[in-house]
């Protein structure tokens, strides 16, 4: 097995003090992997990503990035640890232009930002074409691509994606998943939260099933897809 990039041990966290949504989650993402987290609504899938990003307080447990503990680091510092995050909603700055969105994404790079943005444009020609346009005028699918690009400017080692397919048309979903696959092929590990469990598991190396803030099952994507317990509980009849 490759080196672990992210390692969570017994993470407990919640939005309100004394009311934890996550009640001890263990999870590992290794170099070059695509790992997906599935589970019913309210299982704490998105909450886990927010906890890693320092957006909510972790009250128990720890997590490590490349072996170093980073529990409860302020959000703006976790970016420097090589973690990119694309939230489900509000994942672009609507009143800023596309170029300004990418400049904000590359905030921590300082003077090297220009070059990273130019490299990114080579991968996403659409963004370069429309770089002076406001992000708020983009369609849902284009927005999602910009959101991915914004998180990629800093060349993260690990990308956390919160329901990248939510609210998109089938065509746009294909496009987004293709983009994610390409990002992964360039060596970026991916931790993916998805409602569309079937699609996510097919797409991933491994998957975790969360239920009520705890790990329920885990395994390779295809194993989970075939596991009758998972099918019954969370996927519905296939």
């Amino acid at each position: 097995m490759n080196n672990p990039i992210l390692e969570c041990n017994g993470i407990a966290a919640g939005y309100v003090k004394g009311l934890n949504i996550l009640q001890g989650v263990d999870l590992v993402v290794s170099e070059g992997e695509i790992v997906s987290i599935i589970g019913p609504n309210g299982a704490g899938k998105s909450t886990l990503l927010k906890a890693i990003m320092g957006l909510i307080n972790i009250s128990a447990g720890r997590f490590f990035i490349e072996g170093l503990e980073k529990t409860n680091l302020p959000t703006h510092k976790i970016v420097n640890e090589g973690v990119g995050y694309v939230p489900q909603v509000q994942n672009v700055f609507p009143s800023l232009t596309i170029e300004e969105n990418l400049e904000m994404g590359s905030w921590s790079l300082g003077k090297n930002a220009k070059q990273s943005i130019n490299e990114l444009y080579q991968e996403f020609p659409l963004l370069e074409e429309r770089r002076k346009e406001k992000a708020g005028n983009l369609s849902g699918g284009q927005r999602q691509i910009l959101a991915l690009a914004r998180a990629l400017v800093t060349s993260p080692k690990l990308l956390l994606l919160d329901e990248p397919s939510a609210g998109l048309s089938p065509l746009a979903i294909d496009d987004v998943f293709k983009t994610i696959k390409n990002i992964n092929l360039k060596g970026v590990s991916i931790l993916l939260v998805e409602q569309n469990a079937k699609r996510a598991l097919k797409f991933s190396n491994r998957g975790y099933v969360l239920d009520q803030g705890r790990n329920a099952y885990q395994g390779t994507g295809t194993d989970l897809l075939d596991d009758p317990r998972v099918v019954d509980l969370y996927l519905g009849k296939l």
Binding site: M53, L55, P74, T75, H76, K77, V79, N80, Y85, P87, Q90, N91, V92, F93, P94, S95, L96, E100, E103, M104, G105, W107, S108, R150, A151, T154
Partner: peptide
Amino acid sequence: RIGKAMRAVRDSGELASISGINS
């Protein structure tokens, strides 16, 4: 840079933090 960051925080303080800006 600061002006753009102000507009970014105006749009979403959380997203600005995620982008590495100290809101």
